[in-house]
Design a binder for these strands. Sequence first.
DNA 1: CATGAATGAGGTTTCATTCAT
DNA 2: GATGAATGAAACCTCATTCAT
Lengths: 184, 184, 184, 184
Amino acid sequence: MGQSLSTKERLTQAGKKVIYRKGYHSTRISDITSEAGLAHGTFYLYFKSKEEFLLEMLSTIRKEVLSLIERGISLLKGGKTEEGKELVFLRSFELIVKEKELAKIFFFEAICTSNSFQEFYKEGKRLFMGRLEEALRLLGIENPDLKAEIVIGTARHLVEEAILSKREVIDRWREVLRELGLFS
Amino acid sequence: MGQSLSTKERLTQAGKKVIYRKGYHSTRISDITSEAGLAHGTFYLYFKSKEEFLLEMLSTIRKEVLSLIERGISLLKGGKTEEGKELVFLRSFELIVKEKELAKIFFFEAICTSNSFQEFYKEGKRLFMGRLEEALRLLGIENPDLKAEIVIGTARHLVEEAILSKREVIDRWREVLRELGLFS
Amino acid sequence: MGQSLSTKERLTQAGKKVIYRKGYHSTRISDITSEAGLAHGTFYLYFKSKEEFLLEMLSTIRKEVLSLIERGISLLKGGKTEEGKELVFLRSFELIVKEKELAKIFFFEAICTSNSFQEFYKEGKRLFMGRLEEALRLLGIENPDLKAEIVIGTARHLVEEAILSKREVIDRWREVLRELGLFS
Amino acid sequence: MGQSLSTKERLTQAGKKVIYRKGYHSTRISDITSEAGLAHGTFYLYFKSKEEFLLEMLSTIRKEVLSLIERGISLLKGGKTEEGKELVFLRSFELIVKEKELAKIFFFEAICTSNSFQEFYKEGKRLFMGRLEEALRLLGIENPDLKAEIVIGTARHLVEEAILSKREVIDRWREVLRELGLFS
DNA sequence: CATGAATGAGGTTTCATTCAT
DNA sequence: GATGAATGAAACCTCATTCAT
């Protein structure tokens, strides 16, 4: 921290940026390395292949969001309802929107790259949904499984709007949560 | 039915099938033609390029769904509330789920193929949302624009489940509509 | 004559026109047939292949010009000097310029198509040169072989100007002949 | 010499050789690379496309000959008549004949490849002619523009003989120049 | 650690030619 | 004779990956 980034991190940052801009398929390894100011071959010192690189990007965002939600659930379990809700429903959403480069990669590149990435995406979605349902249950919401689907669907829709149309969606998301009776 | 299809239709059907299975990027023209039992070059008698082929697939599903919704809106305007709701909220959803090959192409290939396809997708989404909002307004629903976002997001989520996880989602969709106060 | 053209002739005329415009390599058989208002396959009822078609074009112009020159030489031999010179040096040049479509094909497509066409071109050139030298000898010109090379080279250059730059070259050609002491 | 050539140079040399032998259209990129002992893809590290490669070949010869003539003209302007004539009329011709591979590409491939190459050829010819006329004017020759056309046409004819029929033409060219009163 | 030249498999597209009607 | 749908060989070009320095 404060330190100049490691070579691997430079590649990751560059890849995030370039893939966000051009999409995974149109991004060449040399785009990433030249964005990072490194030689083409350097890429392969840190990643086995382009696919593995994508997987690393995807894991990052998946892990970050999940851990946020899990911390929220711990709070809920500890009786800190407001703080928990905040993390589970707001902070996690804001994180995704803030990390729109990674989010775009997760939501829009994962499915159409290959079947193994599709699996990765599905697994991620299942994990999100499970946590969400648990949170809703802890909050005593009726039909938590159904509500979870509505929440996750609408969230995804707004994230899409943020990414594809650069729309501001944070406030809208609060409205949605209010409408669904999850926030007041 | 039972009639032999035109060559173009054979290509379209084959393409739909193969792209659904392998994804647009992994599908080679020769995959499509050999699935159709035709020679490689035949493809180019009917489509200018692989991209144009994709566009045709995308247009098909977009047009079909939109026209269904529009017919529903006409009914709503004509006072036939129940029939209208049926078309706008149920039949259109069922159509998408039935045409899951095309739907997958629309929802998952459009965004990550090239910017022009992304625009096509965005335009489609805008059109869907506009119609949906209109329908909700005709039904006297409060906050029709907000509701439209929730509806479209959740619908998309369930379609994704149907496509990626082969989950049965028709009944679930009815539950969602009921939960949102749109059906009884 | 006066009759509508035969199918074969329609193809030939169309080919002449299209190849002049687009060049032999860029011209597709279907360009020729559609210019002629015929079906694609019809081409192959009259020509064995695209190459044979080119050969026929090339033969046409070669034959026409040679026969003109030969008639001129006959006149020279019969003592009709002025009429002979007229044919050999002027009419033949004018014919080539008038038939610029065929001339372009002969001069610019023959060499770079394949080795057999190169041979055809070389043979044509040898024939032209032989006749020209004979004519010059009949006229009692000194160094007829050398003069023939100068005449043929300059003629070709002006034809090129006419074809590539649409320059008017008939008068210029007369000046050249005068400069070379062949006309007064 | 004896030094190993750069990769780009190896490709250029190989291309020159192969195109001379087979013609531009019949030459595949892989012919060039395998002649150079390199992999197919290497070609595209040094040239954007087959067309750009051709352009480079064409530029080379055009530039070389023009610079020779321009040096000759400088000499003429400086009063060094004999040395200037030598460069303008003899050395430049010899250079073209020596570089017959490139000359063939310039004279026979440029015209029939595409319109942009045709333009390149026409521009080259215009430049040659302009210089030649200037030289003739500096030498006090009458009708320099007409003479320039005769000189350029005949030169081109002899170059063609050298290339297509492997004829020895240097001495013949001297005869031509003498016949035209440009050398003694 | 880093470099970047070289590799070559693989995909899209074109179009001369055939042939059943 | 005429048609035009279908064929499939070839050629261009890209780019992930390797490896000698």
